[in-house]
């Protein structure tokens, strides 16, 4: 009993000292509670299904950011990892009868392999050439899918895959939990020493090499890590939709990922995740406005790009928080002195 009381008190202290002080942390906690309580408030299968898909695409968008946002290796063919993950999970489930908890990580691993295979030729390329080359890879793979319909199901894809779990609510919780966990891992990676090198590679690759760091290795690492997380997203998608089809490899899928990330703010991880949570449900719920949907989508996007070139979420964050000029700690925008070093924030 004492132990419980101790932890409850500790939780309150952490909430008071670490969370309440920064609006962005409050937002993360509210977001977490929203995900946690969503099935309590709604039993609507349609809503749950949309938010499950949203979580899956949030992983995908964050994994693009890990590669392209951080290391600057702009990947216009991110659907490759997603599709490879989906097909690998589907095939291993259908033919080898691997359960989802094994086939989904397997999808991630096969996508790592794909990351290596496309990463090696892409190491020599930069900028536009890199973007165009990466764009081609999912198209090539789609060619293979159509060329061997016996193995891949061709146009129809592979169907009849096992569900992740029996009930929709369990499905939702598993996917949402994974989304939270994987995105935290990605954020931790970008916050680590490896993340600093990723950042530096985007800024000036030659200078990184002149600092004695093997940039080739780090770029490949970025391709593999990104592939892994995107592959897991693909595996989850296959098991959730119970089908892995060529739509996972489509060019529009690759572009959607880029749009989400740019909308939310690249090189942040939280930006693309937030963007998916706004754009994907919005697009779905606007379904009854079919004709205007794409038009509105395009308008919103242009407005964001024009007025918030760093993306929506970094812009919002700068509105509600200010950085202390002395100690670089973030403070709520209404404060006049820094909460740590008491420097003036004016």
């Amino acid at each position: 009993m004492d132990l419980i009381r101790f932890y409850v008190r500790k939780l309150f202290t952490v909430l008071k000292n670490e969370v309440i002080v920064l609006p962005s942390r409050v937002v993360v906690v509210v977001f977490f509670l929203f995900l946690l309580l969503l099935p309590v408030f709604t039993n609507n299968q349609y809503t749950l299904r949309i938010f499950t898909l949203t979580c899956i695409f949030a992983i995908l968008a964050a994994s693009w950011d890990l590669l392209s946002g951080f290391t600057g290796q702009i990947n216009f063919g991110h659907a490759l990892f997603f599709g490879v993950g989906a097909y690998a999970a589907a095939m291993s489930n259908l033919h080898v009868h691997l359960p989802p908890w094994a086939s989904i990580p397997l999808g991630g691993l096969v996508a790592v392999l794909a990351g290596l295979i496309i990463g090696i030729p892409c190491l020599r390329l930069r900028g536009t050439y890199l973007a165009l080359t990466t764009l081609a890879f999912p198209i090539i793979l789609m060619g293979f899918v159509f060329a061997f319909p016996d193995l891949t199901g061709g146009e129809l894809g592979i169907s009849g895959i096992e569900r992740i779990a029996r009930s929709r609510v369990t499905n939702y919780y598993i996917v949402a939990g994974l989304m939270f966990g994987l995105c935290t891992i990605m954020w931790k990676i970008t916050d680590s020493n490896t993340g600093i090198i990723f950042h530096a590679i985007r800024e000036d690759e030659l200078a990184v090499r002149a600092s004695g760091v093997n940039t080739t290795r780090y770029k490949l690492l970025a391709f593999c890590l990104s592939g892994f997380f995107a592959g897991i997203a693909g595996g989850l998608y296959a098991h959730f939709m119970r089908i892995a089809g060529p739509s996972t490899l489509e060019v529009s899928m690759s572009f959607l990922v880029v749009i989400w990330a740019v909308f939310g703010g690249v090189a942040t991880i939280y930006g693309p995740v937030g963007a998916v949570f706004i754009l994907f449900p919005l697009l779905e719920f606007l379904r009854f406005w079919q004709e205007y949907r794409t038009l509105m989508f395009a308008c919103v996007l242009i407005v964001i790009l024009l007025y918030m070139p760093d993306g929506l979420f970094p812009w919002l964050r700068d509105k509600i928080e200010t950085e202390c000029p002395r100690c670089k700690i973030r403070n709520i925008a209404t404060r006049t002195v820094c909460r740590v070093c008491s420097a003036s924030l004016e």
Binding site: I196, H199, D204, L206, A207, S211, G212, V213
Partner: peptide
């Protein structure tokens, strides 16, 4: 480098940390 090539959007300490992360 004669024409300095810092990582402009990284803090100064992170600029140097890249060198500190080299195997040597």
């Amino acid at each position: 480098f004669q024409n300095m090539r810092p990582f402009r959007r990284l803090p100064i300490i992170a600029n140097v940390m890249v060198s500190c992360l080299s195997p040597r």
